[in-house]
Design a protein around this nucleic acid. Sequence first.
DNA 1: GTTAAAACCTACTAAATAAGTATGTTATTT
DNA 2: AAATAACATACTTATTTAGTAGGTTTTAAC
Lengths: 151, 151
Amino acid sequence: MRLTTRGRYAVTAMLDLALHGADGPISLADISRRQEISLSYLEQLFAKLRQNDLVSSVRGPGGGYRLARGGELINVAEIIDAVNESIDATSCSGKGNCQSGGVCLTHYLWDDLSQQIHRFLSGITLDGLVHQQEVQRVVLRQAEESDSASC
Amino acid sequence: MRLTTRGRYAVTAMLDLALHGADGPISLADISRRQEISLSYLEQLFAKLRQNDLVSSVRGPGGGYRLARGGELINVAEIIDAVNESIDATSCSGKGNCQSGGVCLTHYLWDDLSQQIHRFLSGITLDGLVHQQEVQRVVLRQAEESDSASC
DNA sequence: GTTAAAACCTACTAAATAAGTATGTTATTT
DNA sequence: AAATAACATACTTATTTAGTAGGTTTTAAC
């Protein structure tokens, strides 16, 4: 199983969209500034997010990205899937050929674990995150930081 | 979060010990053969397992490893921890300094996820695995394979 | 219509980590 | 004394991630 910066960045960026995208598209430059993620890297991630119909884009000045559907219809598991981080914890990617054609001793353990994780992450929507107190606190802090930066 | 071959190998090897270690220590050479894991790699893993008091060793001919306690007292989470695969899914290793000293937007999400995974894996003991039907089936298959190999 | 902002695209590089190999030394039983 | 197996360390290779560089295309605004 892999869960690294890539998946975390993708979820963070999507959450940023959910938080700030209410009136009009958000540019990757904005997200890059607020979330401290390299612009080029964001571009790569958003290419995948777009391919997977999680965001739609508007080109040209004033353009950017918006969520392809409401934040209550997008869950964290599909974001991570989109950027190619498999949540699967088995070594055989669920195929069951981990030891000489058959399953290895611990295949079912990792399979169960994968399902647990997937269930947990599918149950969390962007809207769900937006409404969490802890997230709101971070949003406020980020707003202050950008204020002081502009002085 | 990392969950790769290292952690999987460690759990598989420990389960092999739980399955075959009833009367006397098991050599890494045996485990290597049955579970198709390189001997040298097993030695590295068992160094860590020993440091973490999960196995005890007997040197010399006829020697090998045995579980340091009963299989009902060893859970999967501690095995994975022992071989240095952190189950933590945050980028800051739980420290909460992921964005300019504070927590990042998704810190609590990954923190929750880490706890979920840890709870799941701590709930599974070696004994629990030993008694699973699916595991028993694999054990039978491995026994057949070693029979046909010795002909 | 020019300019500038932004998406979009592709290839490359560097760093980190995992996986595996090699080559021993030491303890202990037979 | 010989063989077995733990114990130890250093090294190599492969893979993956993270990030960079250098473009092109589209389109709104001036």
